[in-house]
């Protein structure tokens, strides 16, 4: 479904043809669930929140700004919903900003990076856990960029951050992940 088709579907839904909305749900259910899943770290919560996102999107569809892509708008709702959920859940997220640069990993360095020695499956498992330790504002950009393969520009539109800040946050998030992983190994 391209952008023009999406706009046609949106117009039809706004005119009262609710059933057409299912095409948008089918198109975006997987990326939205994956995004929220990596944000909150739990599949059941992710599917429930994703449902909320699609319902909220439907309810406020009349306010959709056509200068953005529908996906941008949907991910903005998903981002807000996920961050709101994380705040309410009050997960003890340790603020890494400013601290991670002073962190010393607990392994003996032989000159090569421990990340290089990890087998692929274990690295992914550790990485999944490490993402959950990132502060939400870093988690959202890294998940959007790497997991849902959203461009820097679109992330800037979704989060409302300047492009430079988005790139900086993604870079810093990867450095935080590296430090967390080195601590795990």
């Amino acid at each position: 479904m391209d952008v023009t088709e999406e706009l046609q579907v949106i117009d039809a839904v706004l005119k009262g043809d609710v059933d057409r909305y299912e095409a948008l749900v089918n198109r975006y259910q997987k990326p939205i669930i994956n995004f929220i899943f990596r944000m909150v770290g739990n599949y059941e919560d992710a599917t429930e929140l994703a449902q909320d996102v699609f319902i909220k999107s439907y309810v406020s569809l009349a306010g959709f700004n056509r200068q953005y892509r529908f996906s941008t708008w949907l991910f903005r709702i998903a981002t807000n919903r996920a961050i709101d959920f994380l705040r309410k859940r009050k997960v003890a997220v340790v603020s890494m900003e400013g601290d991670y640069e002073d962190y010393t990993p607990q392994y003996k360095s032989d000159g090569s990076s421990p990340l290089e020695t990890l087998e692929d499956g274990r690295l992914k498992t550790l990485l999944g856990d490490a993402i959950q330790q990132l502060p939400p504002e870093y988690r959202e950009v890294i998940v959007l960029y790497h997991v849902t393969e959203t461009s820097y520009e679109e992330i800037a539109e979704i989060t409302g951050l300047p492009l430079g800040t988005v790139k900086n946050r993604i870079f810093r998030a990867r450095k935080m992940l590296k430090k967390i992983l080195e601590g795990e190994i």
Binding site: E22, V25, Q29, N34, R38, D120, K124, L127, E149
Partner: peptide
Amino acid sequence: VKEDYAISKALSAFPKVNAPTKFAATVM
């Protein structure tokens, strides 16, 4: 650069979860 690429590669290769079978139907 090597480490950053390693992390980027692992992040991008994360296995994707599927939506529940009746997800769209439930929303509708």
